Measured scan of single mutants.
Amino acid sequence: EKTLKIVADSEEEAEALAKELAEKYNLEVTIERNPEEEGKYVITIKIKP
Score class of each variant (00 low, 15 high):
Glu1Ser: 02
Glu1Thr: 05
Glu1Ile: 09
Glu1Gln: 03
Glu1Gly: 06
Lys2Phe: 14
Lys2Met: 14
Lys2His: 15
Lys2Asn: 15
Lys2Pro: 14
Thr3Tyr: 15
Thr3Arg: 02
Thr3Pro: 15
Thr3Leu: 13
Thr3Val: 14
Leu4His: 14
Lys5Ser: 14
Lys5His: 15
Lys5Glu: 14
Lys5Arg: 05
Ile6Ala: 02
Ile6Asp: 00
Ile6Trp: 13
Ile6Arg: 02
Ile6His: 02
Ile6Cys: 10
Val7Asn: 15
Val7Trp: 14
Val7Glu: 15
Ala8Ile: 07
Ala8Asn: 01
Ala8Glu: 01
Ala8Gly: 02
Ala8Met: 14
Ala8Pro: 00
Asp9Asn: 11
Asp9His: 05
Asp9Trp: 04
Ser10Met: 01
Ser10Ala: 01
Ser10Trp: 01
Glu11Ile: 11
Glu11Gln: 09
Glu11Lys: 13
Glu11Ser: 09
Glu11Val: 08
Glu12Trp: 07
Glu12Gln: 08
Glu12Met: 10
Glu13Asp: 05
Glu13Met: 10
Glu13Thr: 08
Glu13Val: 08
Glu13Gln: 10
Glu13Ile: 12
Ala14Val: 02
Ala14Tyr: 01
Ala14Pro: 00
Ala14Met: 02
Glu15His: 10
Glu15Tyr: 14
Glu15Phe: 13
Glu15Asn: 13
Glu15Gln: 12
Glu15Cys: 11
Glu15Trp: 09
Ala16Phe: 08
Ala16Glu: 09
Ala16Asp: 06
Ala16Trp: 13
Leu17Val: 06
Leu17Phe: 05
Leu17Ala: 02
Leu17Asp: 00
Leu17Lys: 05
Leu17Gln: 03
Leu17Thr: 02
Leu17Gly: 00
Ala18Arg: 07
Ala18Ser: 06
Lys19Tyr: 08
Glu20Thr: 12
Glu20Asp: 08
Glu20His: 14
Glu20Arg: 14
Leu21Gln: 01
Leu21Cys: 03
Leu21Phe: 10
Ala22Leu: 12
Ala22Pro: 00
Ala22Ser: 10
Glu23Thr: 11
Glu23Phe: 09
Glu23Leu: 11
Glu23Ile: 09
Lys24Pro: 01
Lys24Ile: 12
Lys24Leu: 14
Lys24Gly: 05
Asn26Asp: 09
Asn26Ser: 11
Leu27Cys: 14
Glu28Val: 08
Glu28Ser: 09
Glu28Phe: 06
Val29Cys: 04
Thr30Ser: 10
Thr30Ile: 05
Thr30Lys: 06
Thr30Met: 07
Thr30Gly: 02
Thr30Cys: 07
Thr30Ala: 05
Ile31Glu: 00
Glu32Val: 05
Glu32Gly: 04
Glu32His: 03
Glu32Pro: 00
Arg33Pro: 13
Arg33Gln: 11
Arg33Ser: 09
Arg33Asn: 06
Asn34Phe: 12
Asn34Ile: 10
Asn34Ser: 13
Pro35Gly: 08
Pro35Thr: 12
Pro35Met: 12
Glu36Thr: 12
Glu36Ile: 10
Glu36Asp: 14
Glu36Phe: 09
Glu36Pro: 08
Glu37Pro: 07
Glu37Asn: 08
Glu37Lys: 10
Glu38Pro: 10
Glu38Gly: 06
Glu38Ile: 11
Gly39Glu: 05
Gly39Thr: 08
Gly39Asn: 06
Lys40Asn: 03
Lys40Gly: 06
Lys40Ile: 05
Lys40Gln: 10
Lys40Ala: 03
Tyr41Thr: 02
Tyr41Phe: 10
Tyr41Cys: 03
Tyr41Gln: 00
Val42Phe: 04
Val42Glu: 03
Val42Ile: 14
Val42Thr: 07
Val42Asn: 03
Val42Pro: 00
Ile43Pro: 00
Ile43Lys: 00
Ile43Asn: 00
Thr44His: 05
Thr44Val: 09
Thr44Trp: 12
Thr44Phe: 12
Ile45Asn: 01
Ile45Pro: 01
Ile45Glu: 01
Ile45Val: 12
Lys46Cys: 03
Lys46Ser: 09
Lys46Pro: 12
Lys46Met: 13
Lys46Leu: 13
Lys46Asp: 07
Ile47Ala: 03
Ile47Tyr: 12
Ile47Val: 06
Lys48Met: 09
Lys48Val: 13
Lys48Trp: 11
Lys48Ile: 12
Pro49Ala: 11
Pro49Ser: 12
Pro49Tyr: 14
Pro49Cys: 15
Pro49Phe: 12
